[in-house]
Design a binder for these strands. Structure first.
Lengths: 211, 211
DNA sequence: CCTTGTGAAATAGTTCACAGCA
DNA sequence: TGCTGTGAACTATTTCACAAGG
């Protein structure tokens, strides 16, 4: 169990965890690295090696207890507690994020939503209270949060991220189309469908040459 | 210019392209790998090496012409043409994707939207026509598309992906929380905010130990 | 003097292959 | 027998460092 675990390994753990959760719900008791690898499209060796960074969770000749491994991953990933999240930006995208039902069951609670223009939001039947971004810094001092989700236009995103970081938020999920500048101790993950599409059109374009 | 270009390199090109586009809009004429690296949080050597897989686009002592490099990247990434996209799944998430304004300016046209339950969608003021997924296979045969965006529940996602792949779609943007099974010639990119959050909670959790 | 492009060196990550245990 | 855990081998990726050009 070395002190330096590669970031790629950490980013695969949630993928393993998600599959394990499903297997557990399906009532599967035991699973081998072979079976996991098949379902996820990765090699069994990689799964065993990844898990071996954190402990010995399997049984030789048998495989892994689904129950046990799910619990270990929950623990490793910090999913035994709930996490406080603020959402900044409540435009079209922000509203979709605010109403997404997938966060809460996984332990992520959106405890505040902010926008430069808070009154523009009470338009629908959605019952979310939106505060002004001007209040963000103060609110974070009063009630700290763990994670910030940024869904403002690219032009405003860095300023919002700066406020979050200054207020001590050390994890940011960035939907804005910019490369966020943050100190080394702050985690950032980028969600950007356009970048993903453009990575694929490279291949589509290339294939158009010799089909 | 070797024949085998690493996938990580290809996935960074859109990031470079996005920044270059902004610089061009701002009227910047020339930029060095140092400046690009600073703005993106990567090393200048990496940018030079990445670009060198595709050609020699810079001028020694000067840097890169923003105009020239933007054009080269547009060309490499296949962004000089428009791409036809279908969206499958028009629930909460699918509607947000359908109404997202960021695809069209980048050359991605959503030419069809599908749902198992097409009539449920005409609820708002949105003017999108939604067809039944039952029609998907036939429609794709009549008018092929380049890219499929999957925004259906996890339980249905693999079936939808199978239909797309069988119909010859070789690029899939998957918003469903599953590890898609596809043949080797099909590109898949996953958009999953929960996985991204869980990758960050690992670090938050760990830090809670020794702050 | 400044900055590219690039082999070579260094680092990082993956896969192999097998000892060891159930 | 079947499968894990893991050093060692291999492969991939990043960074260095410098020749060469403007």
């Amino acid at each position: 169990m070395p002190l330096e675990i590669p970031e790629v390994v950490i980013d695969r753990l949630p993928v393993y965890y998600r599959l394990l959760s499903r297997l557990q719900a399906d009532g599967t008791a035991v699973v081998s690295s072979q079976e996991l690898g098949l379902a996820l499209g990765v090699t069994p060796a990689q799964i065993r090696k990844d898990l071996s960074y954190f402990g010995r969770f399997g049984k030789q000749g048998r495989g892994y207890s689904v129950q046990r491994l799910t619990e270990e991953l929950r623990s490793l990933l910090g999913l035994k507690r709930r996490w406080k999240v603020v959402l900044v930006g409540v435009g079209r995208l922000g509203r979709a994020i605010a109403s997404y039902r997938g966060f809460e069951p996984q332990g992520f609670d959106i405890v505040g939503t902010y926008d430069v223009n808070p009154e523009a939001v009470g338009s629908g039947a959605d019952d979310i209270e939106v505060r002004s971004v001007a209040d963000l810094q103060r609110d974070l001092t009063v009630g700290p949060v763990d994670i910030g989700i940024v869904a403002v236009p690219g032009t405003e995103a860095q300023a919002v991220i700066d406020v979050l970081v200054c207020a001590g938020v050390t994890a940011i999920l960035n939907y804005a189309p910019i490369a966020a500048q943050v100190p080394a101790n702050v985690e950032v993950r980028q969600i950007d469908p356009v970048l993903a599409l453009q990575g694929m059109t490279y291949h589509l374009n290339r294939r158009a040459g010799q089909p």
